[in-house]
Amino acid sequence: MAQKIAVIDYGMGNLRSVSKAIEHVAGDAEVRATDDPGYIAAAERVVFPGQGAARDCMRAIGEHHLNRAVMDAAESKPFLGICMGLQVLLRHSEENDGTDLLGLFGGEVKRFDGLTQGDNGLPLKIPHMGWSRVRHVQKHALWAEIPDDSRFYFVHSYRVVPEDVSVIAATTDYGVRFASAIARDNVFATQFHPEKSADMGLQLLRNFVHWNP
């Protein structure tokens, strides 16, 4: 039977492109954007995207009664967090005057300072928007066929600072060197958007679809 891939839909952001990109690489898998905890529990793989502000995301997860379903999935099966779906895995964010998050990973989500200068002599722009290099700092099955320092597409104003640096799977430089992907056991989560990162992004999603941690 074809595997089921759940894209968790809690009303925060554009899930269509995530679902479409996974469908594009997932062969005959059934890809469904859903807020049904039963489907999420039954799925072989779970993708956890998200956009917007930390507090709104946490509120939406609560309103959809998904806290348990997200945590269960993150503790039991291949799980891919994207953008806000990475950030809310940490314990706490500076955003919205401080927001408590899911706490699967120790650490903080901090705003970019935006003080350093870019190569055009202007202060770095926030959000960090565009294609930046992603440097692998951990060997991982999701980096298969992806050259080190490949560019991926980012849009974010906050960055994750995990307590345990050994979970950092990749770093990116934007004024500061920050964790652009983290990984532990069955969880992989990226600050960048693989679904918007052309061939390299599709390759990462393909790797996820075949990943057996």
């Binding site: 554009n14 269509r16 492109s17 479409k20 990109a21 594009h24 597409y153 849009v155 990162s197 052309a198």
Partner: peptide
């Protein structure tokens, strides 16, 4: 959006929040 996986922007004739929603739902970033 179902076959080109880079950011897409749509402009022109966007007047209401519903117009924004329609474009995002269609796959605009």
């Amino acid at each position: 959006a179902s076959e080109v996986f880079i950011p897409l922007t749509v402009g022109g004739g966007i007047r209401k929040a519903d117009d924004v929603l329609r474009m995002l739902d269609a796959g605009a970033d």
